[in-house]
Amino acid sequence: MNEQISTLRIPARQFCVPLSATRRGARLGRLLATEQLRAWGLPLDPARLIVAELTANAALHGRVPGRSFRLTLSVVAPRLLRVEVADTRGDHLPVLRAAEDEAAESGYGLYLVEELADRWGVRSGPSPCKTVWAEIDLAGPSAHFAPEPGSG
Rank of each mutant, 00 (worst) to 15 (best):
A117G: 12
T55Y: 08
R97A: 05
E148H: 05
E114A: 15
A33T: 04
E105A: 12
V51P: 10
L112R: 08
R48P: 00
L49E: 12
A86V: 05
G121N: 11
G107V: 09
L73G: 01
L60V: 04
D87V: 01
L96D: 04
L8M: 09
G25L: 07
G140T: 00
A58G: 03
A47F: 04
P94I: 08
L54A: 07
C129V: 00
T72D: 02
G121D: 13
I10G: 01
P141T: 09
L93F: 09
V122N: 11
A103I: 08
E114Y: 11
G109K: 10
I50M: 04
E84C: 08
C129T: 14
L96T: 05
N2S: 10
G25E: 08
L112W: 02
L96Q: 11
T55A: 10
R123G: 06
G107F: 08
Q4S: 07
V95F: 02
G150R: 10
R9L: 11
W40V: 00
L42C: 02
R123H: 13
A58H: 03
Q36S: 05
W40R: 01
E53T: 10
A134F: 10
L73V: 01
V132P: 08
A58T: 04
R24Q: 14
R9W: 00
R89H: 02
A139D: 13
G62R: 10
L44W: 03
G29P: 06
L138Q: 03
G62S: 06
R23F: 03
G121T: 12
P46M: 13
S127A: 15
